[in-house]
């Protein structure tokens, strides 16, 4: 336990070091989550557009040809 506290304290600089690492984790994970949701949202929207009956056969064919 004491060793753990000692490690977390990092010679008295613990608050700065953990704040830096925590902030980095927060920003990078936040960016990753936001990007993944961006992709999921547009994926779903595109899927819905493709699947909707309003999409004509021609459109669907041309989209499939593209992919």
């Amino acid at each position: 336990m004491e060793r753990l506290l000692n490690f977390l304290d990092l010679d008295g600089y613990g608050q700065f070091i953990w704040a830096a690492y925590g902030l980095t984790a927060f920003v990078l994970i936040g960016l990753a989550v936001q990007s993944l949701r961006f992709q999921a949202r547009t994926d779903a929207e595109l899927e819905a557009l493709h699947a909707s009956p309003e999409t004509t056969k021609v459109e669907r064919a041309s989209n499939e040809a593209k992919e």
Partner: peptide
Amino acid sequence: ILAIRVRAEINTSKIRALQIRR
């Protein structure tokens, strides 16, 4: 992250094209 976002950007432009066509 670039791979994820580029895919989302390409999706967005496809969606826009489809909507305009519709």
